[in-house]
Nucleic acid binder design. Structure first.
Lengths: 146, 146
DNA sequence: CTTGCACATGCAACCAGTTGCAGCTACTAT
DNA sequence: ATAGTAGCTGCAACTGGTTGCATGTGCAAG
């Protein structure tokens, strides 16, 4: 099954409609590889189809997030980053000092999820997570300065 | 030392000035007990001092966040929640179904922080964290419906 | 006490993102 | 194939939050 079909099926399963606009928007996120801002998606879509309204793009991204097709994460910059949720779930470590974003494998949070469900009966949705802090490089630099 | 003095000292230590507006704004957050939205702070401040501009409040909250005096968390609602960072650091579990926010003790994330520093040399700043998911009550209800 | 200056404030213009609404379109049932 | 309907789209108005700038103010040095 092609990725276009997968997306279409996911939409229909949720009782939503498959429209050219939605497919273009979701395809842009999917093929971005990395995380993209809504603004970036708008630019990209409007370059090809200028008549697509920004509100449609915001609405589509927002409903796709609710469906679990994409994740929305505040990476510390002004506007939120969207990312296609594929097979390789991962999170981000963001250095507050240099702004670098690193991927963090899912397994680091598995333990936490297990603990929450066992001890508190809370089913955590750890699909998307941004952890702020200081990376190794910046920590070394800070030590040298002091 | 009174809490007012603590706040003032923290500001001055960071090379910032102590003004009546700032003290009023930070005091509102500190004494809110729970988390408060910027909008709520604006209402509260303007009830007493109508001349204080919203932009001042946004700027103050934002710089206080950078100083680590308050935390800013997206609780899933439209606007961010601010909370005074006291001795009892904690996080929030937010149910996507019923919207309830529960406090989560810091110890649940200590393990993760340790793992990150030992394995990846990344010093995580886990001062404020919002974990989305489904609470026990809503999970039970969902099971009954199916 | 006075002076200087960096930081903070209020104002107003601005902008990204949201919402209400009327028309349109994908999907479903017949 | 057709009609009905629920959901989507574009438009335009709106709103919460941000930014630039001129003025005001806290604070430290003299």
């Amino acid at each position: 099954m092609s990725c276009e079909n997968e997306t279409a099926v996911a939409l229909r399963d949720a009782g939503q409609k498959v429209t050219p606009q939605r497919m273009a928007i979701l395809s842009a996120v999917r093929h971005a590889g990395e995380h993209v801002t809504a603004t970036r998606v708008i630019e990209q879509i409007q370059a090809a189809q200028p008549y697509v309204d920004p509100s449609t793009i915001y609405r589509t991204l927002s409903s796709a997030r609710e469906l679990g097709l994409v994740s929305e994460t505040d990476m510390g910059t002004r506007d939120a980053e969207f990312e296609w949720i594929g097979k390789d779930r991962h999170h981000h470590l963001i250095c507050k000092s240099c702004g670098t974003a690193m991927s963090l494998d899912n397994r680091y949070l598995d333990g936490l999820a297990t603990q929450l469900i066992e001890e508190l009966d809370f089913e955590a949705d750890l699909g998307h997570f941004a952890i702020f802090g200081t990376c190794a490089k910046c920590r070394t630099q800070n030590r040298e300065e002091n």
